[in-house]
Structures are given as C-alpha cells and as structure tokens.
Design a protein around this nucleic acid. Structure first.
Lengths: 234, 234
DNA sequence: ATCTGTGAACCAATTCACAGCT
DNA sequence: AGCTGTGAATTGGTTCACAGAT
C-alpha cells in the first residue's frame, strides 16, 4: 500500500506552502496595481520560480486558471486566501518588546498582508504598562487572560535566546498554536504546535559562505588561467 | 559518468550550507558553556536534525570527528569557521534605517556570531547625518566611497518594497556581492551576486496555513463535516 | 493559438544501515 | 563497545512535455 509522503494536514507539501505564501503576496501587489489577469509565466517570473512549478503548486488547491488565458487576479487571490488561511482571521501577538519586537509591531510586510498585531508582552517592569504604536505592553503573566480569545493562536517570539524555551512553554500553555521564533535556538514544543524559525545570524553566515567561495574561486582562477584574464566582465 | 548535482562553488549543497550555519551557532554556545566534546547525536538534537544528517553534512568538509568518541567542540568550531567563512572577515552594511534596520544594528544574533555592522545608509534627509548606536547614517549616494573597502561585500536591505530593486542595483554597482533582502519582492541581480530573502509576511502566512489546517482537522474530527468542503455556494 | 493542468522523468536531499576506526 | 563516515536505498521536490480546455 503506497504511503502518501509526509505533508501538512491539508495534503500540501511544505515547500509548496511556502511558495503559495509568496504568490499571495505578489497577487496582492498585482491587485493593488489594478492588474486583472496574469499568466503562470508572468506570475512565476515575479515570484522568482519556474512556471511549471507555479502551476503544479496551484494545482494542489484546484483548477482556478483559464486555459489559453491565465488566471483572474482577484479570483486566484481569493482562492489562495481561502485555501491557505486568510490573514484577517488570525491576530498576532508579539512576545519580547526589544528592538526587533518593536520593529515588527507595525512592520509593513505584516500589515500589507492583512495581519494585525493585537497585543504585546514582556517581563521587563520598565516596559510593562507603556505603549508601542498605541499598543499597551502586558506582563507575560497576563498572557492567559489576554489570549482567552481562541483566535489568537499566532505568536512572534522576539526574546533573547536564553529565555526563548521557557517563554515558548508559557505561550503553548496559554493555547498558542503557531510560533515565529527569532531566537537562535531550536524550540521543543508539542507536536500540535507549529514553529517557524528565523535565524538572522545564520542567514548572514550563509552569505559569508558564498562570499568566501566566490573569492576562493577568483583566486584559483587567477592561478589557473594562463595570462591571467578571464572573460570580460559579465 | 555521473554528473555532480548543481552546487555552491565549494561543492556543498545549499541545504547543507544552511544547516552548517546552524551547527556553528550551536557550537558557539557549547564553547561558551565550556563543553569540550559532543557526539553527533547530542549536536543533532540541539540543532533539531537527524544525527545521520549532521554527520553527512560535516562529511562535506572533512573528517573532523573521532570515532567512538565524538567531536572536539573547539576544533570542529574552528574548522566550520574556516570552511564556511569566518564572520569577523566580513563587515556588514545596513541600507534602510527604518524600524527594522535600526533593530538589526546591534542585533544580538549578529554580534554573537562575530558579525559587525560597519556602516548605515538611507536617503531620508531627516536621518542622514544622525547616528544609531554610535554609527553615523550616510546618504546612499556616498555608498561608493564608504564601501571602497573590498571586504565590505555583505549588505542588509531593509528598505520599502517599492525601493528595493533600484537600491539593490546601486549596491551591486558599488561592489556588494551578497544581499540579505527583507523587502517582499524578488530582486533581479547579476549571477555573481548572492541574495537571500527573508519575507516575514510570508512566514506569518505559512503559520496561518498550518493553523487553518489543524482547525479544519479538528472540525472534521468532530464529525461536523464529512469530508473537506464542497464547491463555493452555487 | 494559447496557456493551463498533470503524469512521467529527472534530480536533489534525507535516512538507513553498516563498515571502519579508536 | 561506541561513534563516526559513507555507499545504498528511499523519499521528496522539480522540471519536462504534452494532453486538454478555451
């Protein structure tokens, strides 16, 4: 009996989900720009993927295109929104109001997609009670009462690495089901909780690797190419 | 004759490079904690990967472990640093001193890995000339003179989406070879330039998808909905 | 004629399982 | 005995190429 590959509950592979999120962002922009129709080729180019990939990704949701024509921007956007989870439905809380947390409170990339930050939390007495962008900062111990609303299930974790695990535990206990973790550690959470990690230090490290490699290439090319010049700059 | 799969110049697959960056972070922590030796199992657990995966990843660099024992933390850390690019060698510039850019100036995740932000740029006259964390904000038009240092090749792009492409062009012209792009658009750059995109809006969107899926599962498990959902009301 | 939707083919990445060293 | 290093097997992901719809 052939076993289906491990997938999100809805049967959509993780890699596809990630790209669908990107497509939705592009469609939002196209809609704002008044574009009515788009082909897989155009949409794929804007999103930076192969057209066949885009079509296959969309095929996981259904057939929302028109053969010979392309996709209706408004309709496809609506369907993506329906299928992958409308941002309006899920208020977001931010835990850890340091520089990064503060920067995310009215981050354009959140609001342009319809996400709303509904509450802020910290443990620093100097912060609790004050406001950022009009939002009051609650003490983490008030989490349970503020998060009683069952729709509040997405938490952004911008606390120092050494506090991330206990704070995550607190969030999970309060009913948070999804975490965006900016701390550079791997969080242990129950299976039903989804964590995505954004490790900005690692991102720089990866870039440093690429830099080092292309430099190494340049040096060895200088040594290998007789006469010392390669192709004219491209 | 089997052809090697497309890889980074150094022959290390992208997925592996990304994890190596994570391992290096973990090793930094272990070293600070005074741990002298670690097994693939322990290291893998901390990094959140399978032990076999970790060993295979490390095998791309060489044989730095001791059979029957594990890895010497200091030595493995040194080797990773050598192999994937020591952070100290690559000063970073930040372009776009909005909330996010400001938050990254002294981001703990950068400095704990040894990355140093060496200059800030913006075009807003209200910002140019002032300082953030002691660093002066230069006008973007001064980029070429400030970035004359050939080691400055990593740029962090925290400008609004609509400005990201022209600003990226300016950076590339000035000799920047690696970009960490926080704008939610796909940048077009020459082949020799490496771009990594961090799309925080998409990250939330992906979490929203998972939330929606587990909610749908819970509802269908309750028996309210026999199977999925039909077509939109017709 | 054109562009979508998709099985089939291909390629990359992960995991297994065990040989080989300490 | 214990743990690393790695070919082989497996799984997952991408691209091709064309059938099918408008």
């Amino acid at each position: 009996m052939p076993v289906e590959p491990a997938r999100g509950r809805g049967g959509i592979p993780e890699a596809t989900v990630s790209r669908l999120a990107t497509y939705l962002g592009v469609l939002n922009n196209l809609a704002s720009a008044g574009v009515a129709t788009v082909s897989s080729g155009e949409l794929a180019a804007t999103a930076g993927v192969n057209p066949a990939q885009l079509r296959k990704d969309l095929s996981h949701l259904g057939s929302y295109g028109i053969r010979g024509v392309g996709y209706d921007v408004a309709y496809l956007r609506f369907q993506l929104d329906q299928n992958i989870g409308s941002a309006e439905h899920w208020p977001v809380i931010i835990v850890g109001v340091g520089n990064l947390g503060r920067a995310l409170v009215n981050h354009a990339g959140f609001s342009s997609r319809g996400f709303r930050v509904s509450a802020l939390f910290d443990v620093d007495p100097a912060l609790v009670g004050s406001r950022v962008e009009g939002l009051p900062i609650h003490h983490l111990s008030d989490l349970a009462s503020v998060v009683r609303d069952p729709l509040v299930t997405i938490g952004v974790l911008t606390v120092p690495g050494e506090h991330a695990q206990p704070v995550a535990d607190t969030l999970v206990d309060a009913g948070i089901k999804c975490l965006l973790n900016f701390a550079p550690i791997n969080l242990a959470v129950p299976a039903q909780v989804t964590v995505r990690k954004v490790d900005l230090g690692s991102e720089l490290q990866i870039l440093a690797y690429h830099r080092q490699m292309s430099l190494a290439d340049a040096i060895s090319a200088e040594g290998l190419v007789p006469g010392g010049y390669g192709h004219s700059g491209e």
